[in-house]
Design a protein around this nucleic acid. Structure first.
Lengths: 341, 341
DNA sequence: TTGTACGCGTTATCAG
DNA sequence: CTGATAACGCGTACAA
């Protein structure tokens, strides 16, 4: 009794279900009187069409699948924030999947998303994923897919990413201009697209300012816990230790910050530190820390907009392309004297 | 052709759909031979049952609706992390809704969740929500509901919350024992359950140590941007300004930290600062900042476990009760000399 | 303008 | 042991 169907209305009004259906969706060929009657009654009983029945019939769900490595990662939770907001306004629901950085789980998630008949898929690849044939298979079955942040160029989809090269270049340049010469780079697994781009930006800046690239200054992390301590120790033990750190994520930036504090290294007196972070995360960061801000929310919004475009105008699939969203460099010097007052 | 149904199998094997259905679900009354034939064929063609058809038939969706004020809030993204992990293992999907701290939107989300026929609802109330009759209505229609974190005691459901009183007491006591006497409390809207509990813990600690309660030291924020600056200014302008700050969220803690830095107030030399934060957020915090850690992930996990219990054993609905998860006080003194080296 | 019948994928019921 | 049929809620081609 709690859920009222088109059938109940038909029975109550002594008309057929098809008439009710047509009235409800405002079909032109229908008696004004009947129409109003139906609408009024439906309104009164708070009739709500059953989307599941519709899904079954139309073989679509008005749901978008989102697969991310980890929700509890500030970048992704912000991206999802952007995604959900837009999707909601466009009448889509968001079903979240976490790959937990596991290829296997990512594949399982994709299968489940398919089973659920999502209308489209937004995905940021797990760090374990190098083979994208499972994704390609879905795509070939006609599932609209948009990649964001951690993307593969072996898969021909629209890709929405931050300007990782530009951001890394700006960060490195900033450190160089601050007089640093031995800039360490703490980053994430080397095979990820975003890692490569950031590394390239870092190297380009070094090159432009005539500083030799020293690969011993570059350290690759996993997404594990407490990994910065050993990295920092190793770097400090070098014959010629770093005088600055450029980290590739907020997690690494803060881990590095904490490690340096524990080792009684002052920032920015002994070393400088700058990290890749996210827009709101920047608020959360130590005010002494300069950051390269990634517009996570914007990336999510644009990704979902593109995806909905693909879903709704299948006829003219926009040619796959890579969209780079600019990053922003936030320099905080003002607090320097305070922190070390 | 991409999706294979029970019908396809039946046609291919020249048997009826009912036989296929029975074979697939291992019905006892069925020929071993036929069974194997069907299973083998289904396996080979990678048959996957259509959950939407099942939903329509069984009037359930194996999906859990989760309504939170904001995904991009570290507490909630961690809670969702816990929720998703458990739900996934139990075969449920998670559909996310953001109320964006709006009552109206929360109500709309609930309606949509109902429309989608979620099997149960996990909710943390928006800051605008005081009237819970919309929730009560759903509950009376038989929808299993579990509240977490921001709960209403006017709604008779299982509630999973952090031990806000205990955490606030511990934080305040810690500050008192560090010699502080004028402890400001920056908190969130006063009508929220969690606000009241934290305030009560704060007052209880003051009382226990014979410090008079001064309401001018308590400031209530909204969830807006950049609200700590004015709060801190007002407090510092008091005839007898605070010598410590206890903040009710990571956002307020960091906002406060930044504001104090800007005003050249040293921590912990001039004032002490302690905040309510979340387990992983603690990593992100300034290493100089002590915190009361809320186990966000655990709260999510327990909430969803309870919900699934309710969903699956409707017969014996566990009596509604409030579960308090302990918080943990993390004191970081070691970094003090470093920050001010 | 309205009603009848069918199909979307699946399972339960009832015959055989 | 297996098959035909109805039902879940909806929209629509076709018939009236």
């Amino acid at each position: 009794m709690s859920t009222i169907t088109i059938k109940d209305i038909a029975r109550a009004l002594n008309i057929s279900t098809s008439t009710v259906s047509r009235a409800l969706r405002g079909s032109y060929e229908i008696n004004q009187e009947t129409k109003e009657l139906v609408l009024e009654y439906a309104e009164r009983l708070n009739y709500r069409p059953n989307p599941i029945a519709l899904s079954l019939k139309e073989n679509r769900s008005r749901a978008i699948g989102v697969i991310v490595p980890q929700i509890a990662n500030y970048f992704f939770s912000q991206a999802i924030n952007g995604i959900e907001a837009i999707a909601y306004n466009r009448g889509y629901h968001v079903i979240i999947f976490q790959s937990q950085e596991s290829y296997e789980r990512e594949a399982a998630n994709m299968q489940q998303a398919m089973d659920r008949k999502v209308d489209g898929l937004l995905i940021s690849l797990s760090s374990e994923t190098s083979d994208v044939s499972h994704l390609r298979a879905l795509q070939e079955q006609g599932l609209p897919i948009v990649q964001f942040d951690r993307v593969s160029h072996e898969l021909d989809t629209t890709r929405i990413v931050a300007d990782n090269f530009g951001g890394a270049f700006a960060a490195t340049e900033h450190l160089i201009k601050a007089g640093r010469q031995r800039i360490a780079h703490l980053t994430i697994p080397p095979w990820l697209s975003i890692t490569k781009e950031r590394l390239a930006g870092y190297r380009a800046a070094l090159e432009q300012y005539g500083i030799p690239y020293d690969e011993t200054l570059v350290r690759y992390g996993t997404f594990g816990q407490n990994e910065t301590g050993p990295m920092v120790d190793e770097l400090l033990a070098l014959p010629s230790p770093p005088d600055a750190f450029f980290t590739a994520s907020d997690r690494l930036a803060l881990g590095c910050l904490a490690s340096l504090h524990q080792r009684r290294i002052a920032i920015p007196d002994d070393v400088s530190l700058i990290g890749f972070t996210n827009l709101n995360a920047a608020d959360l960061l130590n005010p002494a820390l300069s950051t390269v801000v990634q517009p996570a929310q914007e990336i999510g919004q644009i990704a979902v907009e593109r995806l909905i475009e693909l879903i709704e105008k299948k006829q003219k699939a926009a040619p796959p392309s890579t969209v780079k969203i600019p990053t922003r460099l936030i320099v905080r010097e003002s607090t320097r004297s305070v922190v070390h007052s």
